[in-house]
Amino acid sequence: MEGIKGAIKDALDFSDFPKSERIGIIIFYIYLLIFPWVVSSSFARAVMIQFLLFALYGMGWNTIGGYGGQVALGKAQYVGISAYTVAMMMILFNIPFWVSMPIGVFLAVLWSFMIGYPLFRLKGHYFAIATIAVSLVLQDIFRNWEFVGGERGLSLPFKGTPNFLYMQFKSDVYYYYFMLIFFTLGLFYMNWFRKSRLGYQLRAVKANEDVAASLGINVRWAKIKAYAIASAFVAVGGAFYAVYHMYIDTSSVMHLELSILIALMAMLGGAASLWGPIIGAAILVPLDRYLGSWIGGAKGLLGLDLIIYSIIIMLVAALEPRGIWGIVEKVRAKRG
């Protein structure tokens, strides 16, 4: 009981951040809270939902990728597992979202243990390549598996709106607040995580595995646990994706591109920092969607949005490998 109380206290305690950051996050959070009431554009809402989704993915990735320093590039498979679980259970047995989502997350975590156990015998680049390979194999299996719709994907049945049990609403506002709740929970969890025993262990592992092991840390087990936590985060996002878009196929929820995007957003924002994945998603998602819809449809400017998008990524990567948050900290260090 004491432990849980302590954990909750840790999760809610942001006092070790500078005042400016605390004020910044409060303002940003208030903005998120009132966003649907301030902005009525439904495209803007769709973009914000996408932002919250990727922020959640990124926070999850940050456990293993940021704090643990293990470049995992196969996160899409866990998005896929829970999205497919939710879709299949709804199609076959009419099971509501709120029941199928935890099952989907559970299956994703289970799979992550099965994959994590052998995979963490590998280190560095080999580990990164292995995560890609496993993810691709799983995608190919799903693509050829008729039972789960194969390449045709799965369309979720309409249940009439509004329907809270099956998470089917006409307005995006409901989906927005659903994602905001999970975003908030994710943020608190990560705030606790970075101060937790596992959080410190991972940082030690990242700094030097041999030293960490000599201090009595079970390196492999710490990595596996963090990998499972990351999988749970993205699995929540995957379950949401299925009910939100009501259509999934392997190229939308299991594609390598998604795995890379998840890692990219966290890295670009700043890995191993609490704000990094949020900043990364807050910049990349709107940039991609708005540029795409403004320029993408315009004649004569085809592809320009993609060029701008990639130039920004290249610039950040070249200027500061620690991402945007790294740039902020650099500037701050110079001043102070």
């Binding site: 554009s41 439904s42 769709a46 996408q50 994706y241 878009h245 259509y247 969607r289 795409g292 993408g296």
Partner: peptide, 21 residues
């Protein structure tokens, strides 16, 4: 005109933009 780049999720978001905005 909107460009979906063969991505179902992007297409869905753009459809919302066209319909509601």
């Amino acid at each position: 005109f909107m460009d979906h780049r063969s991505d179902p999720a992007r297409g869905a978001d753009l459809a919302k933009r066209l319909i509601k905005d």
